[in-house]
């Protein structure tokens, strides 16, 4: 018999162990009850945690579903490099989808604004991908602590045939009894990290030594300051305004997305404990760096109604 891991103290699972067990329960439940699940893989820290939890849920088996990355073509280059190496190393079945419909031709965040760009390249692209492969359940890494409208999100978020979310028509969710019954053409989004906070995610990454994209750590990067945000000049497509000159600054990112829409913060944190320390002592919420949330009042709720994660 192999060496056994000592059991946790009776009647005391630490909060991370509790959260982990709860997430594993959700992952297994969906795989047991749905025909064709998929995991949305955004390459960010929450996805990293979600993938690790899935590995744990189905150990010693492989992931019983593919990973899906919706690529807007404006992701940081380092994210794509990391994604490909990570999936290859673990033998994950990676699907990548980009919106190539006529509406998406020439779409970019500079000319079309963050809102329209996000709707077409993320929301529409996601719906296309779910339809293309016929997925009936999609795991997402969203957390309830991210934003006010997320606080009311169910673990199983029911979407109609158009992939839309109706906040008034969500199913009551009691205990850990999830209702996975759907009719043909309908689907659910599932959020195994619902009860995790940003701190929980970082701490888990630290404890579990989960690899993450280097962009989360501070390094010298070329940035311009625009509308109060530090935008990294990641490739030649970055449009500089007259007078803007990229400057090398020591920065890192709290969240990752499309590089022209993701603000960096000045930081010298190059280790996970340093990142956590900064986060705990900081005065700004995580989503502040995301330009897409601030476009209009209740904007996350509006996006979700349309089918955004």
């Amino acid at each position: 018999m192999p060496d056994l891991v000592p059991p946790p103290a009776l009647n005391h699972l630490s909060h991370l162990k509790q959260l982990e067990a709860e997430s594993i329960h959700i992952l297994r439940e969906v795989v047991a009850e749905f025909d064709n699940p998929v995991m949305l893989y955004s390459v960010g820290k929450d996805s990293a945690v979600m993938v690790r939890l899935a590995q744990k849920a189905f150990f010693p088996g492989k992931l019983p579903f593919p990973l899906l990355h919706v690529d807007t073509t404006w992701k940081f280059r380092e994210m794509i490099t990391f994604r490909d190496a990570f999936c290859k190393e673990h033998g994950f079945d990676l699907l990548v989808h980009t919106n190539t419909a006529p509406e998406a031709v020439g779409m970019n965040p500079f000319d079309h604004g963050s809102q329209k760009h996000t709707t077409v390249m993320k929301t529409h692209a996601l719906l296309q991908a779910l339809e293309k492969w016929g997925f009936d359940a999609a795991f997402g890494g969203a957390r309830r602590d991210e934003e006010k409208s997320r606080a009311k999100e169910r673990v199983y978020s029911f979407r109609d045939k158009l992939g839309q979310w109706d906040p008034k028509n969500q199913r009551p969710e009691l205990w850990s009894l999830y209702n996975g019954k759907i009719n043909k053409g309908e689907s659910i989004r599932v959020f195994p990290l619902s009860n995790w906070t940003e701190l929980d995610v970082w701490q888990y990454i630290h404890l579990e030594s989960i690899p993450i994209v280097p962009l989360y750590f501070a390094a010298k990067r070329p940035v311009v300051e625009r509308d109060g945000a530090l935008i990294m000049v990641d490739d030649a497509r970055m449009r500089l305004e007259p007078g803007e000159v990229p400057a090398e600054m020591t920065v890192r990112f709290r969240t990752l997305g499309d590089y022209p829409l993701t603000g960096a913060i000045e930081s010298t944190a190059t280790t996970l404990p340093e990142i956590i320390r900064e986060m705990l002592l900081t005065k700004h919420s995580e989503r502040q760096g995301r330009m897409i949330d601030h476009d209009e009042k209740g904007s996350m709720e509006t996006k979700k109604r349309e089918g955004y994660f």
């Binding site: 018999m1 192999p2 056994l4 891991v5 059991p7 009776l10 699972l13 162990k17 067990a21 590995q55």
Partner: peptide, 20 residues
Amino acid sequence: SRIVTFDGDLAEAHADMAVT
């Protein structure tokens, strides 16, 4: 015979733990 987890086999498991 075994209580299997990703982090290694366990000798025992309690309420609320997710195991195989």
